[in-house]
């Protein structure tokens, strides 16, 4: 069974009960209002309390809610048990994009998965709370900093499925979206074995700038920084090298000249020295050493 089917069963059950109850209550109410309107029924009659009736309308709903609880619980249990042999992917939430990493170290910006194989998503966050949500598979779980969580699903048909961030996480929350791309298993294996674009070398060696931009793309830097001088959530990176920056650290404000040591720190521990006038929003980067040097070279020439 798929997660979609498991959840939809419970939906059907609860919707059916709800519609029946709504029709019952509204129907009775309207019928009484028409049947006992003043012009037709000028004298109200006292109705004796009926214990049987009250017991019935307490017990029947109690039974109904217990049934709903039970099926809700069973469906949930299914959602919490990834089948053995699931493909594991580590998903990192950061303001404001998702990063996907496979067991072999392959990274991507969309979640590529093979058709028909269950996928277990291990969730983490590097900054604030995000929530990984794939409506098509009816699954969602928060990515909480300092905590690990997971969910799983099984893609049963081709075609992309949207991934949303469901927990409000700041200015570009609505753009923290990605996609699940379902592939034929063989095609997926080929894709998984091929190196990530940033690691690509050989004939079509990309220029240094292109490589750096790839890195920035992968880590979502452009969500907050421009390279053309426009201000955004963070300061523009144009002319960053050698510029005089006013920073706040430990309650003190001072000026410094941006150099390699400063930039390294700004990337690894952005909260330690905050650029004055900006919020403490930048996620600490998890760049590999190689990516770090590519990036630093690029920042020099921007």
């Amino acid at each position: 069974m798929t997660t979609t089917a498991a959840v939809d069963q419970v939906f059907l059950l609860i919707i059916a009960i709800s519609v029946a109850l709504l029709l019952l209550v509204t129907g009775l109410m309207l019928w009484f209002v028409v049947r006992y309107r003043r012009s037709r029924h000028p004298q109200a009659e006292e109705v004796k309390g009926s214990t049987a009736l009250e017991v019935a309308w307490t017990l029947i709903p109690t039974l109904l809610v217990l049934v709903m609880f039970w099926y809700g619980y069973k469906g949930f249990e299914f959602l919490r048990r990834p089948p053995p042999g699931s493909l594991e992917v580590t998903v990192t939430g950061r303001m404001w994009d998702w990063g996907f990493e496979y067991a072999n170290g392959k990274k991507s910006e969309k979640l590529f998965v093979p058709l028909g194989r269950p996928v277990k998503v291990n969730l983490r966050s590097v900054d604030v709370i995000h929530s990984f949500y794939v409506p098509a598979f009816r699954v969602k779980e928060d990515a909480v900093p300092g905590q690990e969580s997971y969910l799983w699903f099984k893609p049963q048909s081709m075609g992309p499925a949207d991934i949303f961030c469901a927990e409000f996480c700041g200015e570009r929350h609505a753009y923290m979206i990605s996609q699940v791309i379902v592939m034929e298993p063989a095609e997926f294996e080929r894709w998984l074995a091929a190196p990530s674009p940033t690691e690509m070398s050989g004939t079509e060696a990309p220029s240094a700038a292109d490589a750096a931009r790839e890195v920035m793309e992968e880590w979502g830097c452009f969500a907050c920084h421009s390279t053309d001088g426009t201000e955004s959530v963070g300061p523009t990176l144009k002319g960053i090298w050698g510029r005089t920056v006013t920073v706040i650290a430990g309650g003190q404000v001072y000026e410094l000249k941006s150099d390699e040591a400063y930039l390294r720190k700004a990337l690894l521990k952005p909260s330690d020295e905050l650029v004055k006038g900006y919020d403490d929003l930048m996620p600490p980067s998890e760049l590999t050493d190689e990516q770090m040097s590519i990036l630093l070279e690029y920042l020099k020439i921007l």
Binding site: L21, T26, M29, Y73, R138, V139, K140
Partner: peptide
Amino acid sequence: IFLFSIGGLTGLMQGALATDIHLHD
């Protein structure tokens, strides 16, 4: 009574675990 009933009944869908996972947020 009509609107509040809809409010209450939609609450059931969020009280049940499996369905709330989809509906939450």
